[in-house]
Design a binder for these strands. Structure first.
Lengths: 342, 342
DNA sequence: TTGTAGGCGTTATCAT
DNA sequence: ATGATAACGCCTACAA
C-alpha cells in the first residue's frame, strides 16, 4: 500500500474529463458551468476525496482565512471564555483561529510579530492583560488590522471591544453604600490597566454620589491576582490608622477571593464583619462560601463581538466603533449591612 | 501614502544585488554564501522589512508548521490548561496552533475534517470530552496524524497522552478507607468515557484491598457536571435502602462540588457527616469550603507532552508510546473519619 | 560560490 | 460555456 499523493485540481479535471478552470469554477461558483459537467466534477471530487490545498489558495488570494488570538493565559477563566467567543465568531465564518499565549518569561516579541507579517493570519485580536503594549504590538498594528479586547491601550488608537466597567463598578459600589457602609477601602488592579482605571472611576462616582469624599477612601493597587488581594486586604484591614473599613471593593474576583481568605485568617467574618465585592463574576465565584457579589462581564460575548468585528473589517465592511457592552451586578451573600461592633 | 506591496525575495535580491537563490540560501542556511553577500542580503531584509510569505513556503514544502487542537470547551479549566500546554510545546518549536472548539449543538464534522484535509495543519491533537468518536475523527486519522489527550477511544488505535487515573483513584479511595469509612458510594462519570472507567476501576481496587466487596458499593453514573453530582449525591444519600454512606467518591471535582451542595441542602455537614473526594484538583477546589480533597492531574504538562509528541511524530522521529503521567493525591478538609451517629 | 529555470496547486484573464 | 496560460512567492536541482 503506497502512500498516495493528495489529489489536485488537475487530477479532478482529468478524472472528470474537463479542464482545471472548469473545476475551479464549480469549486468557487466563479464561472458558468453546464449542469452535467458540474456533476461530473462533483463526482470526481467525491471519488478522489479531493480537497483543495489551502496553502495554494492562500498564496493566490493573498489572505489566509485565519486570524490570530493573543491572550496572556488560558488558566484564567475570563480569558478562556473570551477566547472561546472569538473562536465561535471565526468558525461561524469559516475562519481559523491561531492561538498565541506569549510566554511571560520569554520576550514574546518575535513570535507575535512574525505571525502577522508572515501573512499566516489576516488580522489579530489582542488581549495583553497588562495594559502595556510590547513593541511587537506596534509592528503588528502597522502590518495588519489589530483589535483589542477588554482593554484600551493609551497611545494606540486601536479599535477595542470592552464592557462598561465603569458603570458596573459604580453600581456595585452603590449597592454597598445603600447597605449603609460608610468606611470602605478599594483593592484596585494594576494602575496602568485601563480596566483598573475605569473601575476605580466607577467606585469614586458612587462614593461621591453618596456624599463621601472619594479622596478619603484608601486605594490599594494590586495585580489582579489572588495573592495580592490577600496581602492588600490585610493591609486595608489592619495597618490603616482609624477605624477598620466595613467593606472592601475589589477590582476583580481573584483579588476578592484573596481578600476573603485574608479575612478568614484575621478571624473576621464575611460578610458580617467585612462585606466584599468583586468584579468579573467568574463561574467559581458563586460556588464560594460566602457566594461572592460581583459584576458579570459577558466574556464569551466580548470575544464573539471582537471576532465578528475583526472579520467585518477584513471583509472591508466599514465598521462602526462598538459601544461598551453592558455588565450586570450579581447580588449575593458577601455583602450585608454593617454590623455594629459589640 | 500608497499602501506598498509586501516585499518579496525578488525585491530583496534586487536590493542586495544578488540572485533570489542567494537570498533563499541565507534565509534557510541551505547553501554556501560568501560573508559579504550574506550581509548585504541581511541588510536588505532589514531595510525592506522583508518577511517570508509562509503561504508560498507551505505550498512548496507541503507542510504548514501548524497543528490543530480540538477541545470541547475552554470554560472548563482543565481543558484550558491542557490547551495552554499544547500551545507552549508548539510555540517552542515555532509551530502554530489552530484552535477548534466544536459547537456541540452543530454537527462538528465539517469544520474539523476539512481542517486536516486542507493541509492547513500537519496534525491534530484531539480531546473529545465525551469518549465517543465522531465520524470526522476517522477521516482525520486517515488523512494525518492524530493524537489523543486525556482519553483513549475504543476501537481507534491512536496514540494518547493520559495520566494514571486508576492509580489516583485507588489512592484517594484508599485514603478514605484508611480513615475508617466502610459505607461508601461512587458518583461516577459517563460510563462510555475511558477516564470514568479507569477511575471506577481504581476505586474498586482500593475497596477490594480493604476487604470490601466492590460489587456491594453503589455506583451512580453522572455526566461530569455539577448538576449531576448534586442529583446523584442526593440519590446516594437518601434513596438508598440501608444505612446512609459516610463517604462519596466523586469521579471529578465538578460533581464533587455538586455533591457538597446537595449535602448542604440536606442539612448534612461535610466532612463530619459525609466525607467527599473529587478528581482533577481544579484550582478552584482548594478555594471551596471545605477545601476539597482531590487528585491532581498535570493538565498543563499533559498538553505539553501531547504537543511535543505530535511534533516529534511529524518530524519523523520514531516516538515511544508515552506511559501514563503521574497524578498526586491532595489531602484537604473534605475528608475526616466517620463520626458515630448520635 | 552564484544564477537560471521549473514547479508547488490555485485563481483569474483572456481567447475560443 | 470552456480551456490555455500566466501569475502568486518560494525552493531547489542543475548549470555556470
Amino acid at each position: 500500500m503506497t502512500a498516495r499523493r493528495r489529489p489536485t485540481m488537475k487530477d479532478v479535471a482529468r478524472h472528470a474529463g474537463v479542464s482545471v478552470s472548469t473545476v475551479s469554477y464549480v469549486l468557487n461558483d466563479s464561472g458558468p458551468v453546464a449542469t452535467d459537467r458540474r456533476n461530473r466534477v462533483l463526482d470526481a471530487i467525491r471519488v478522489l476525496e479531493y480537497s483543495p490545498n489551502e496553502s495554494a489558495r492562500n498564496l493566490k488570494r493573498r489572505s489566509a482565512s485565519t486570524i490570530g488570538m493573543v491572550v496572556p493565559e488560558l488558566a484564567n477563566q475570563f480569558f478562556a471564555m473570551v477566547t472561546e467567543g472569538v473562536q465561535r465568531a471565526a468558525s461561524a465564518r469559516d475562519v481559523l483561529v491561531v492561538l498565541v499565549v506569549p510566554d511571560a518569561s520569554q520576550q514574546p516579541e518575535e513570535s507575535q510579530t512574525r505571525l502577522l507579517r508572515s501573512q499566516r493570519v489576516d488580522g489579530v485580536i489582542y488581549l495583553s492583560g497588562t495594559g502595556t503594549a510590547p513593541a511587537s504590538l506596534y509592528d503588528l498594528a502597522r502590518s495588519g488590522p489589530v483589535l483589542l479586547v477588554d482593554e484600551q491601550i493609551p497611545g494606540l488608537e486601536l479599535p477595542a471591544i470592552v464592557c462598561d466597567s465603569r458603570r458596573g463598578a459604580r453600581e456595585v459600589a452603590a449597592h454597598v453604600l445603600e447597605m449603609g457602609h460608610r468606611r470602605l477601602a478599594v483593592i484596585g488592579g494594576p494602575a496602568a490597566l485601563w480596566t483598573s482605571q475605569q473601575r476605580l472611576a466607577g467606585y469614586r462616582e458612587a462614593l461621591a454620589g453618596a456624599g463621601i469624599d472619594p479622596d478619603q477612601v484608601p486605594v490599594h493597587n494590586g495585580d489582579y491576582r489572588q495573592a495580592s488581594g490577600s496581602k492588600l486586604a490585610r493591609q486595608a484591614l489592619c495597618e490603616t490608622s482609624g477605624p477598620r473599613p466595613t467593606a472592601l471593593l475589589c477590582a476583580n474576583d481573584l483579588m476578592a477571593i484573596g481578600a476573603i481568605e485574608a479575612c478568614r485568617e484575621l478571624g473576621l467574618r464575611v460578610p458580617q464583619d467585612v462585606s466584599i465585592v468583586g468584579f468579573d463574576d467568574l463561574p467559581l465565584s458563586s460556588l464560594l462560601t460566602p457566594r461572592l457579589t460581583s459584576v458579570r462581564q459577558p466574556a464569551h460575548d466580548m470575544g464573539f463581538q471582537a471576532g465578528s468585528a475583526l472579520l467585518d473589517q477584513l471583509e472591508g465592511t466599514t465598521v462602526e466603533p462598538i459601544p461598551p457592552l453592558p455588565v450586570s451586578v450579581e447580588l449575593r451573600d458577601s455583602v450585608c449591612p454593617p454590623q455594629e461592633e459589640t
